[in-house]
Design a binder for these strands. Structure first.
Lengths: 221, 221
DNA sequence: TATATTTTTTAGGTTTGTCTAAATTTTAAA
DNA sequence: TTTAAAATTTAGACAAACCTAAAAAATATA
């Protein structure tokens, strides 16, 4: 089955909202897709008739198994292109999203599988988000914020939950990016700031910042 | 200015027909784009009003300077993606066209310029067709068919004008592909077949085949 | 619980790119 | 040069994906 760009964008948006908020409402979806609630309702009827979601007027909607499966493949395409743009074409990891948004709708399975192979089957995209494999499976990591990280554990930055300009500015200044390795050394109880060791230097990070930096680490066995 | 996928396909098709046949007719364009003459007329009006072509009802049409400029950029995108698919993702050079047809409509100039750089500024695509540079300039080669090639000149296969299944079959069998180096040794007057040296072996090629294989060579200085 | 507010849907309209069938113009043939 | 055939355009419709304004349903508030 083939889907239009618009259908794909709806499926992807529903998937993300479902994942993040638990539920999806007509208004939230309209907001996310920069469109009007009435247009969302139109599309819900269409996707419902294609059995990609469960929908009852006024009762809300959610992706069907098939809808989820397709959303995961769209996300796979998106994240592989993001990886390509960042790794091969040397785009900054915060520039790749919009371009991948367009490339993801080229849907040849063979193309994507070969791209995957060419890139060396990367499990995570440049933002630290997992890339579904060619069966739609995602390798999920146990991510915690720097705030929750225990002392003296080697950890690696995986994701930045707030991507405002201000946030990116401070990250750039402190030279923290996806993949950066760090270790928490100390908590200051006065303002809840955190002292962190990065590449043999020590920096202090505010509570707000620490909260928005997600890392992975190996819990002591 | 930004154009729809449909507009871009029309511009590209007109450019190719103009180049190959000299003129473009409504029917020929409809045939090429697998659509109906009435639809072509509709689009001609639209492109005319955008000043991308010169159009007078019943009198025919041709690309304006601006239309040509844009067509060349679309062709640039198409051929760079073809090169990428063939060179990096290891698709066969006769499989890349359809995929490039989709990728070419992702129109970010920055993306294409970086792709170009990443690929090493290739001047020719896997079919031997020239890739316009980032100013729309194409490096044109003096191509001749194997039939017209003088004796004992090292030449290189650049293009195959007939791409039927039958043609590709015989090329594959004889191990001739874009980039293959060859030299003409002899003409047989009886059936106009040509004896050609390829990689230290000698093969005979029929007149029809020789006519459809275009090569470049350095004329004796 | 009745009323006000918010959310969602319906009704009807627009644009883009397509179509078929009919009309018009050009070109070819008698 | 008149007629027949072919090419092209016009007229009117349709599907997809939007929109606005109004109606209906659900939720929150007095």
């Amino acid at each position: 089955m083939n889907f239009t760009t618009s259908e794909e964008n709806y499926l992807k948006a529903i998937f993300h909202l479902q994942e993040k908020e638990g539920t999806v409402t007509t208004n939230a979806l309209a907001e996310k897709l920069q469109t009007k609630p009435a247009s969302v309702t139109d599309m819900m009827k269409k996707l419902n008739s294609k059995r990609l979601l469960h929908y009852k007027p006024y009762y809300g909607f959610s992706l069907s198994t098939e809808g989820k499966r397709i959303a995961l493949f769209i996300i796979r395409r998106h994240r592989l292109w993001e990886y390509f743009l960042s790794e091969k074409l040397k785009f900054d990891w915060n520039e790749v999203h919009l371009l991948a948004e367009e490339l993801e709708h080229v849907s040849s399975k063979q193309l994507i599988d070969r791209l995957d192979k060419y890139l060396g089957y990367p499990p995570f995209d440049p933002h630290g988000d997992p890339i579904p494999d060619n069966k739609g499976k995602i390798k999920s990591l146990n991510k915690v914020s720097v705030l929750e990280l225990p002392f003296n554990h080697a950890a690696q930055v995986r994701q930045v939950t707030n991507q405002s300009k201000e946030m990116l500015e401070i990250l750039e200044h402190k030279n923290i990016t996806i993949g950066t390795k760090l270790e928490v050394k100390k908590h200051f109880h006065f303002d809840h700031s955190v002292e962190v060791k990065i590449r043999n230097t020590t920096v202090t990070i505010s509570e707000q910042l620490a909260k928005n930096i997600l890392v992975t680490y190996e819990p002591q066995s």
